[in-house]
Lab assay of single mutants.
Amino acid sequence: KPRTPFTTSQLLALERKFRQKQYLSIAERAEFSSSLNLTETQVKIWFQNRRAKAKR
């Protein structure tokens, strides 16, 4: 499956949310993903990858 090209504004929103909170609840993820026009899976995986990056 092809890589999702996130827009700059989506990335800024994702990073801002990640700084507030590294783990989103299912409800938060649902609301946040629809506000960004992304799927919940895209947001879930982005947060997983971002947490992995933060550990490195």
Rank of each mutant, 00 (worst) to 15 (best):
F18M: 01
P2Q: 11
R16S: 14
S25M: 04
K53I: 11
T39N: 11
K1T: 10
Q42V: 11
E40N: 03
F6L: 06
K44M: 13
L14Q: 02
A30N: 12
E15M: 00
A13D: 07
S25Q: 04
Q20E: 12
K1N: 15
E31R: 02
L11G: 05
R19H: 11
Y23C: 09
Q48I: 11
T4E: 10
R16L: 12
E31S: 09
E31Q: 05
K21P: 01
K17P: 00
L38R: 02
A30H: 06
T39Y: 05
W46S: 03
R16A: 15
Q48R: 05
A13C: 08
R19Y: 12
A54H: 07
A52C: 08
I26E: 14
Q20R: 05
A30S: 11
T8R: 10
E28Y: 03
R56A: 13
E28H: 02
T39V: 03
K17V: 09
L38H: 01
R16I: 08
T41I: 05
R56N: 15
A27C: 11
A52T: 09
R56C: 10
L12W: 02
Q10E: 01
R50M: 11
R19D: 08
S35F: 05
I26K: 07
R16G: 12
S25K: 05
S33C: 06
L38F: 02
S35M: 10
F32P: 02
R51M: 14
Q42H: 14
K55Q: 10
A30I: 14
R19S: 15
L36W: 08
A30G: 11
N37S: 10
L24F: 03
F47M: 04
R19Q: 10
K21T: 13
T39E: 09
R3K: 15
F6Y: 10
R29H: 10
W46Y: 06
L11C: 10
Q10V: 05
L12V: 07
E31D: 08
R19T: 15
A54E: 15
F6W: 05
R50T: 07
V43P: 02
F6R: 03
Q48W: 05
S33Q: 04
L24Y: 01
L36C: 04
S34A: 14
T41V: 09
L24N: 00
W46G: 02
F18Y: 15
K53G: 13
E15D: 02
K44E: 15
L36G: 08
Q10S: 02
N37F: 03
E31K: 05
I45D: 15
Q22C: 08
R19N: 14
F18I: 02
L38E: 01
L24V: 05
